[in-house]
Design a protein around this nucleic acid. Sequence first.
DNA 1: CGCATTTTCTAGTGGTCGCTACAGAAATGA
DNA 2: TCATTTCTGTAGCGACCACTAGAAAATGCG
Lengths: 223, 223
Amino acid sequence: MNPMVSSEETERGGAPARSATETRGRPARARGRPRSFDREAALERALMAFWEHGYEATSVSDLTRVMDIGAPSLYAAFGDKRTLFEEVVREYGTRYGSFGDRALAEEPTARAGIERMLREAAVEYTTPGRPHGCLVIHAAANCSTPEVEESLRERRNANIAAFERRIRADVAAGVLPEGTDAAALARHAGAIIQGMSQQARDGASREELESLAEIALAVWPRS
Amino acid sequence: MNPMVSSEETERGGAPARSATETRGRPARARGRPRSFDREAALERALMAFWEHGYEATSVSDLTRVMDIGAPSLYAAFGDKRTLFEEVVREYGTRYGSFGDRALAEEPTARAGIERMLREAAVEYTTPGRPHGCLVIHAAANCSTPEVEESLRERRNANIAAFERRIRADVAAGVLPEGTDAAALARHAGAIIQGMSQQARDGASREELESLAEIALAVWPRS
DNA sequence: CGCATTTTCTAGTGGTCGCTACAGAAATGA
DNA sequence: TCATTTCTGTAGCGACCACTAGAAAATGCG
């Protein structure tokens, strides 16, 4: 939309974030009028707004109010609303949504990883002073912009795929029995977080949901 | 908003739905110009639209298009958008969302009821020719109208309370052991449908989510 | 200083939102 | 036939949506 903005991440003014291209003396500040707000802080405020209300229900005027900047400043610094949202989702993934990946990577078994992930989710999703629940799960519903909807759906499916890979790794290592239905187990973990309804929205088949329900009743094999 | 409409449910014209106050001869038709569309069919179309896209993302012009009526006809027959949505939710509850209540009422144990509910949910949520998932769970997200949000949240909490009552009944009847945590078991069943994130949005505490996760790992006591 | 560059503020743009005034059309009862 | 009642189509209301043109302000460079 805006050809003047080559990319997000244009950090050039601000207070002390001057680039160190000049090795001595005067810092290599950019030329024009410096930005009068903290880009990272503004991004964090936008993140909270989108997390709280979702993509559609957060208007640009909502954003300019909580970020405390004018609309032209927002568009110059972050591109349009969708671009800002995508950067917010990336930021959310690194700052708030990474506990699952960490649990699965650091615990010795998939079961321990998923158990830790669920226990941490109970804390993460109810932390005071933050919106509750998961931005990726909630900000996509009622979304009238197909690109955003698609992007978030792919993210959720990728998470489930990550569960499945971790479980397969345990199966390969002999930690879980040979016949373990890794895909179904991964879907069970995803179901605790998203729910059967959410997965039905994202294209899961009846058979997939049925095997998920089956496991929700029996849960993990006594390994 | 519109004082001319005393209530929804004003079925007076249409084709053969003439009231039988007159016992003989001419039916007691209402006076003015009869409605030119089938109110039930139009309501069903609105139900599908809201189910598919959610409350916010379904505009009145979307509704008039799928219902194939003008906006004034919509407002005369159904009140405003929120009133129409509330009627749609009621209709959804009786036509599509009652399988859970039925399962809990008809099966001999809570476990069998919830098992049947989950298996039926897998079918209901993926039935071809219908929007997937549950309208009550999905139509509330990204909702900028507090009254609608509140109404749907109460509905979800009421469902969980119904699970809990059914489980308590089994505990009282000796079907489940004395120390069974009925509230936590009910939350587990709800979690399979809505997910931990959805419940965090609806006000569940960290402790409630933690006990839900606990049960998601151990699931039902060997009864 | 002047000049180039970039950000800021003001004040909008066209479009869609939910909703409705109004007049004509189609039924009724007298 | 005519008045009354009710519905339907046109046409548009004010409010908000995402977004931006244009001028003023703030910096670095010469």
